[in-house]
């Protein structure tokens, strides 16, 4: 397999955690990795090949302008490595919009895809995750965009989690077809007649359940839903720890509780998901969250390799063409 290109400069903990993650990935997964970034900033790269890139697109840079102006940035060079057949896939924990822009402008859009979308796995303890898309790439959407998101999301759920004929749902404010925005109502009709395993509308509370394998929405709503879940889980974890330390009596049983809670916490750990996937471009592109640790990068590289082996891009191409 060609190496996975890892943007060493992207993310809150770059380049240290990213480089460490890349080195660990090679050791643990036996997957080749090439780092992309400023060689002098990377420290000990553990002998990994480095594609030099002199610039960095920052978290606050305008995505489209950043990609256009910083042609020698690590993000742009990583996407070019995939385009030029030097890498099998790319992984970045950097600026999400710029990652999408670099992939779109350098790898190119899949023929027939109107807009690429970000598919984020929402952990569901004891079950396969729910794939939420769009998680933030397209704030404004049309019903046909959402139809394509559903087609791509279903293909991704099959490739990523082995789910045959995944259950596809539309995010709304109630199960009834009369509820929701004009976009939701018009999209519902399209999804019902698209040959997908469409199970109707679901609500935000269903995201962390087995109600659906794929939940489709516009990028604005999807991002709000995702961030609300993240904030809620963060609050909940903090509240549980505070409660366990709130008294001597509580502290005395905290060890037992921690043992019981650890597996649940592991399943909810965002570093374990392997990151979000950009669907609709001519290559595998993983968008890891900004605060990715070395472990998150290992998992992202693992998923990237699996999606290359699983011919994700061809599956997406087929899913959109068939629709």
């Amino acid at each position: 397999m060609l190496p996975i290109a890892v943007d060493a400069m992207g993310g809150d903990n770059a380049p240290r955690e990213i480089v460490e993650g890349a080195k660990l990935a090679v050791e643990e997964l036996d997957v080749p990795v090439v780092l992309v970034g400023q060689p002098e900033a990377l420290g000990d790269a553990g002998g990994l090949e480095v594609i030099p890139a002199s610039e960095v697109i920052g978290m606050r840079d305008d995505p489209a302008q950043g990609v256009r102006r910083k042609k020698d940035s690590s993000l742009v060079r990583a996407a070019e490595a995939v385009r030029d057949g030097k890498a099998a896939a790319m992984v970045s924990a950097g600026n999400t919009g710029a990652t999408m822009g670099a992939a779109l402008l350098r790898m190119g859009r899949l023929k027939g895809v109107q807009r690429p979308a970000i598919a984020t796995p929402i952990p569901v303890p004891g079950q396969t995750p729910t794939v939420l898309l769009d998680a933030g790439a397209n704030a404004e959407c049309t019903p046909t965009y959402l139809l394509q998101f559903a087609q791509m999301g279903a293909a991704f759920a099959t490739a990523r989690y082995g789910i045959k004929d995944p259950k596809v749902a539309l995010l709304s404010i109630g199960e009834e077809e009369t509820k929701g925005t004009t976009l939701v109502k018009e999209t519902r009709g399209l999804l019902a007649g698209a040959g997908l395993n469409f199970v109707g509308n679901v609500e935000g509370r269903d995201l962390m359940s087995d109600a659906a394998d794929v939940v489709v929405t516009d990028g604005f709503t999807g991002n709000v839903a995702l961030k609300t879940l993240e904030g809620s889980l963060k609050f909940l974890v903090s509240a549980v720890f505070n409660a366990m330390n709130s008294s001597e009596e509580a502290k005395s049983v905290s060890g037992v509780l921690l043992d019981a809670l650890s597996p649940v916490a592991a399943e909810l750990d965002p570093d374990a998901t392997g990151g979000a996937m950009l669907l609709g471009v001519e290559g595998v592109c993983i968008i890891s969250h900004g605060s990715s640790s070395a472990r998150a990068i290992v998992n992202a590289v693992r998923v990237a390799g699996e999606m290359v082996d699983g011919q994700l891009v061809d599956r997406l191409r087929g899913a959109v063409a068939a629709g």
Partner: peptide, 13 residues
């Protein structure tokens, strides 16, 4: 045309 900023940059390039 519902063209977003990335679509316009695609056109420009």
């Amino acid at each position: 045309l519902d063209a977003d900023s990335l679509a316009l940059i695609e056109l420009v390039e």
